[in-house]
Design a protein around this nucleic acid. Structure first.
Length: 1124
RNA sequence: CGGCCUGUAGCUCAGUUGGUGAGAGCACUCGUCUGAUAAGCGGGGGGUCGAAGGUUCAAAUCCUUCUAGGCCGACCA
């Protein structure tokens, strides 16, 4: 490869020398520099909008970004989702795809409407209409984007690349027109109908509430069950009697907690399979029907006197029996025109329970969902005398003008006077309340627009099976169940700030309706000049009318869309489909998207609406892969709460530790698999200490490795080159780390492609451990070898080549790792790329090599792989660990040299491979010689254990007996088995890995064994070894002295000492004396004089019972001539 | 009340299709440095795997019940 490339402007002049590394690593400062770099070189733009300098055409990886409400500030949940939404596109971009990432804003809906109502100081629909829709909507438009700047700041600071310039807003005319197109398409397919749905209504607001809003209502714990639920409220508990028309003096008893629904009673429901009882009340002689268990309940509470049982019958026998209307207002519905019975009869309903009331349920179809469904099944009429404000209209006589809840008392009074009340009590129960006004909600059937989805259920489920869910269970469980039980979608809202339903209807003939699918169509029908309509909000389109066939006027219906319908239309509407010709095929080819990611709470939200619309419109799933993230809780396990201040401010955490660390922390958790996560290191961590740990764990290891390379390369004059990136080193250590990096790449790619983000950081940490704690530590000497000198048994030429290989290998490793980690820690990866490649003029701007994020993701090379070598190092490191444990156990410090270490490994190839790392093992452990052996019988006692996994299935019940026999085998028998590989026990032939052989250290031996590797230390210490150990202790004390004296590492010294006993003997040995002097840079070593210069530093100590007194005096420039 | 998820070391969490010495990080403790990194490296202690039953030769793992928590939904007569 040639080094002739277009250098990056501003890169340091001259050759390929590394820039000196920063003195101190300040991550937030580094990140700010990187942000500036990205901006100044438009790197983000080149990636996002695919404006590469090389102009290459790339296949498209389609990502849909779900729009957040623009009315709140971003919190940790958004940062987490943003991180996921950044990592995945970055990876696929590096894999050679084009990945458009457009930010979206959800601009419509109740959150912003409520906010504006509060700010304008008005409440309720009536107030808004009084103010006027144009003014209200203008306020919404002006207010909805107030936080976009804050969002952009935080999102960018997190390192997320997403296009804010080319964003989409659900209030854009183009977006809204596409929503119309979506609706019109559904309309043309016959999937839209007008119907009723029982909805919670806030009478104070005069508007129905969404389930979402209901859930936002006041909550409290039930004092008995301690369960969180709706705020509790006291209501009447009224039992009334309905007179049967076909039997004398006989009544059906029914119970209600909402007397205001009684005027609208149209039926009574019984469970067809429940047994009811017919009784005579002794005191009054009346005959009553109800469920016997409930009767007993009333009698226990002494609400009813004694009764005489007359008969028992199943509910099905009551079905169809007529009764007199309780109140006269809707008595006309008693019979149909043809004379058949219509309302006021007993109907069958399986939802009826016998745990409250009477077992006979009052039915007011307009005021309960179950009632409504029962009414529909039985062809009952729908009567609703209530307005949205909960006020009765003229149809209910004396109750007209009363608020429903206020009418309760008057209704009860009238029923009481008519002898229709059996029992009147109160009940305290959880009941939904308005989240804004705190008033109890009323349920009532309202006219709404529906999309038919129930017939699509099966298709939903089929298409959903093609989706790769992370984690899998959300797709098959929660979401799958939801799809299988999907209900027709109520997609209209009686609100103001939203996309208006594009339905115009004749005010004379309501059946004359037209659905508009585009602006052009509207202009044409209304006779307007093309281009007249530029905005589709209510204040603009509600005034557009035209003459109808029936001589009336075509006016738009009042409703606007549920904002979920808009977000579900996002795949089409963000590109103004199908109106924008240029984008048409992209939209069609971009469905399903390759990837989306949102929180678990979107199961019923965006995931669902995307699914419904793409199935209905295109018969396709909307996305191929989805990552569902869980909820982030505060460190104390509670929800994050601004009030409790139980979590650290995100900006503060980023400013202190950097975005990379926060990203790595968030992603290194099962929260990316839909599980909840506690943001904190411990329960009281409210400062983000957990993120500091992540800096230490994930960034510093890489930083240290980089710092090592650059420091030595600069000192040594080594220069990186393009050739170094393809280095084929000879040394085993180098070949090993390159192989190890390949397996790391393979693992990373597999995890990225599987969207298993929580496995990325652990894989990377394992590599860092290998890199820092073995590769660099063991290879350290190679970097500071003098050039041109024969060392380590190598000729000067060999030593030179080996050293170059070492530099090149480490350089290559760091470059590769920075690319593999770029999606996860985009700042630090970029920092490395800039320092290693850009500043050294090794990048070609024309080939878009000036940012790590424009580079291709590194492919693992099979040629560099050497699995056996990787295993050998594993084993060597394991042997070292075992031996370290032995030293610890025997209290022999690493400074004390030992004569020999024995490693027993049965496998011949592995043993030979471990041998190649002999010097490393001995160096790590401070041992003189290594003995390798295939046979560990002198070191350990063999015991055997049955391999349950292998034998269990084969032996079944005999397993226990055999296992016991195996455990009873003596060492000799096990040894025989180890040789022959077979044994007869309890009539079974066991062979191969039917037995697992364990090694227990023999008594009196310094031996440890694990996983087929046995190590033994020779702890017999000769005088020679002991003296060397002592000399090293002295050496250690001198080094400590150097440090307390704050001497430069290259500062020469004069060393003086006075020692006793063996210490004296050790230091008298010439070779040890030379060692101490060499390692401590001592130019002189002599007995301690009586007088020392002022620059001397002193220390005395006791080592193994002998004493030593030390003094060091700095030598050379800047110091006076030391006493000699 | 229903659906889904969770309960493993002091804390945060791993533990594949059941296979028998239950792991990591942090914290604790002991040791270890001087030509990358003490914001480092290594050793160690610490858990009746939420509880109780059951299936099985074998259960942290499968089943049932209970219990605690989370998310979503239902909360009606």
């Amino acid at each position: 490869m040639s080094d002739a490339s277009t250098p990056v402007p501003g890169a340091p002049e001259g050759a390929h020398t590394f820039r000196s590394p920063p003195q101190q690593l300040k991550l937030p400062a580094v990140e700010h520099e990187i942000l500036e770099l990205w901006a100044s070189r438009d790197i983000e733009g080149r990636s996002l909008r695919d404006q590469r300098k090389d102009g290459g055409q790339r296949p498209e990886f389609v990502f849909y970004d779900g729009p957040p409400f623009a009315t709140g500030l971003p919190h940790y949940g958004h940062l987490l989702a943003g991180t996921i939404k950044d990592i995945v596109p970055r990876f696929w971009y590096m894999r050679g795809y084009r990945v458009q990432r457009r930010f979206g804003w959800d601009c419509h809906g109740l959150p912003i409407e409520s906010l504006i109502e509060n700010e304008l100081g008005i409440h309720g629909k009536a107030a808004i209409e009084e103010l006027g829709v144009p003014k209200f909507n203008a306020a919404c438009r002006a207010g909805v984007l107030r936080f976009t700047q804050e969002w952009e700041t935080v999102v960018r600071r997190m390192g997320r690349w997403v296009d804010f310039r080319n964003d989409y807003k659900t209030m854009d005319t183009s977006f809204m027109e596409s929503v119309w197109w979506v609706f019109k398409s559904l309309w043309d397919k016959g999937l839209i109908y007008e119907g009723h749905r029982v909805q919670p209504v806030s009478p104070a607001l005069g508007t129905p509430l969404s389930n979402f809003e209901v859930a936002q209502g006041p909550q409290e714990k039930d004092p008995v069950t301690r369960k969180e639920g709706h705020k509790r409220r006291q209501d009447p508990s009224l039992t009334v009697r309905f007179k049967l028309e076909d039997e004398q003096n006989a009544y059906l008893w029914a119970w209600t907690t909402t007397p205001w629904t009684l005027p609208s009673n149209l039926a009574l429901a019984v469970h067809p399979e429940v047994t009811y009882v017919k009784v005579r009340v002794k005191a009054t002689g009346e005959i009553a029907y109800l469920e016997p268990g409930r009767l007993a309940h009333y009698q226990e509470r002494e609400r009813i006197g004694e009764t005489e049982e007359l008969a028992r019958l199943p509910g099905s026998e009551l079905v169809g029996r007529p009764y007199e209307p309780l109140l006269p207002f809707f008595a006309d519905y008693r019979t149909r025109e043809d004379g058949t019975r219509w309302a006021f009869k007993v109907v069958s309903a399986t939802y009826v329970t016998t745990d409250s009331g009477t077992g006979i349920v009052h039915q007011a179809p307009a005021f309960g969902e179950d009632d409504y469904n029962v009414g529909k099944e039985n062809g009952l009429p729908l009567v609703n005398p209530l307005s949205l404000s909960g006020v009765f209209d003229e149809s209910v006589g004396e109750f007209a003008g009363l608020f429903a809840k206020d009418a309760d008392k008057k209704i009860v009074a009238r029923l009481r006077s008519e002898q229709k009340v059996v029992d009147h009590d109160t009940i305290v129960h959880p009941y939904p309340h308005c989240y804004r006004t705190d008033q109890p909600l009323l349920y009532m059937a309202l006219s709404t627009w529906f999309m038919k989805v129930e017939h699509l259920r099966e298709r939903f489920v089929e298409l959903n099976q093609k989706v790769h869910w992370v984690p899998e269970h959300v797709g098959s469980g929660r979401f799958g169940n939801w799809l299988a039980n999907a209900r027709d979608w109520n997609l209209s809202r009686n609100r103001f700030w939203g996309t208006p339903l594009p339905v115009w209807r004749c005010d004379k003939d309501p059946s004359d309706m037209v659905c508009i699918g585009s602006i052009a169509e509207l202009e044409k029908l209304a006779g307007l000049q093309p281009g007249t309509v530029t905005d589709l909000h209510r204040e603009h389109v509600d005034t557009i009318t035209w003459a109808s066939k029936a001589g009336g006027t075509m006016r738009r219906v009042k409703e606007v869309f549920d904002c979920w319908f808009e977000s579900g239309s996002m795949p089409y509407a963000q590109n103004h489909y199908p109106f924008d010709e240029a984008q048409r095929s992209r939209v069609e080819q971009g469905l399903p998207a390759d990837f989306i990611a949102e929180g678990l709470d979107q199961t019923r939200g965006w995931f669902y609406t995307l699914h419904v619309l793409s199935t209905a419109l295109f018969d396709r799933p909307p996305f191929k892969n989805v990552i569902v993230n869980g909820l982030i809780l505060a460190a104390d396990g509670k929800k994050m709460s601004k009030r409790l201040k139980n979590y650290p401010d995100p900006n503060g955490v980023i400013d202190r530790y950097g975005a990379d660390a926060l990203r790595a922390y968030l992603i290194n958790s099962q929260v990316v698999r839909a599980e909840p996560m506690r943001f904190g290191k411990h329960k009281k961590d409210t400062t983000g200490e957990c993120v500091r740990d992540t800096v230490r764990l994930t960034i510093l290891p890489l930083w240290n490795a980089y710092n090592f390379l650059v420091t030595y390369a600069r000192a040594d004059g080594w220069q990186p080159s393009k050739a170094a990136l393809d280095v084929q080193p000879k040394a085993d250590l180098d070949r090993w780390i390159l192989s190890r990096v390949q397996s790391f790449l393979q693992e990373m790619i597999a995890e990225y492609e599987d969207y298993a983000l929580s496995n990325l950081v652990p894989a990377y940490l394992r590599l860092c451990d290998d890199l820092n704690n073995w590769y660099i530590r063991r290879g350290r000497r190679r970097y500071w070898r003098k050039r041109g000198a024969a060392e380590d048994g190598l000729t000067p030429e060999q030593a030179e080549a080996d050293k170059d290989d070492a530099y090149a290998t480490l350089f290559r490793v760091l470059v590769t790792v920075s690319r593999a980690m770029a999606p996860v820690i985009p700042f630090f990866a970029e920092f490395l790329h800039q320092r290693l490649l850009v500043d050294t003029n090794l990048c070609d701007v024309e080939a878009d090599e000036d940012s790590v994020h424009l580079m291709p993701f590194p492919e693992p090379s099979a040629e560099l792989r050497d699995v056996a070598l990787e295993q050998a190092v594993d084993s060597a490191r394991q042997a070292v660990t075992l031996a370290m444990g032995l030293r610890e156990r025997e209290s022999i410090g690493v400074r004390r040299p030992l004569r020999s270490l024995t490693i027993a490994i049965e496998d011949t190839d592995l043993r030979a491979a471990v041998q190649t790392f002999e010097a490393d093992i001995l160096g790590e452990l401070n041992v003189k010689t290594l003995k390798l052996s295939a046979d560990d019988s002198e070191l350990v006692t063999l015991t055997a254990k049955a391999n349950f996994k292998a034998l269990g299935r084969r032996l079944g019940k005999k397993m226990k007996v055999v296992a016991k026999a195996v455990a009873g085998l003596d060492a000799a028998a096990v040894a025989t088995y180890a040789q022959t590989g077979s044994i007869e026990l309890e009539g079974e032939t066991l062979s191969g890995d039917d037995l697992r052989i364990d090694r227990a250290p023999k008594k009196g031996m310094v031996v440890a064994s694990e996983g087929g590797i046995t190590v033994a230390l020779d702890t017999d210490i000769s005088d020679e070894l002991r003296h060397e150990g002592l000399a090293r202790e002295v050496q250690n004390r001198v080094q400590n002295l150097r440090k307390t004296a704050d001497l430069d590492v290259s500062q020469r010294i004069a060393l003086f000492y006075r020692a006793t006993g063996d210490l004296q003997k050790a230091l008298a040995r010439p070779e040890l004396r030379a060692m101490v002097m060499g390692e401590t840079l001592a130019e002189h070593m002599a007995d301690l004089p009586d007088i020392l210069p002022a620059t001397a530093h002193r220390h005395s100590d006791k080592i193994d019972g002998d004493t030593i007194e030390l003094a060091i005096v700095p030598q050379g420039a800047g110091t006076t001539e030391a006493a000699t």
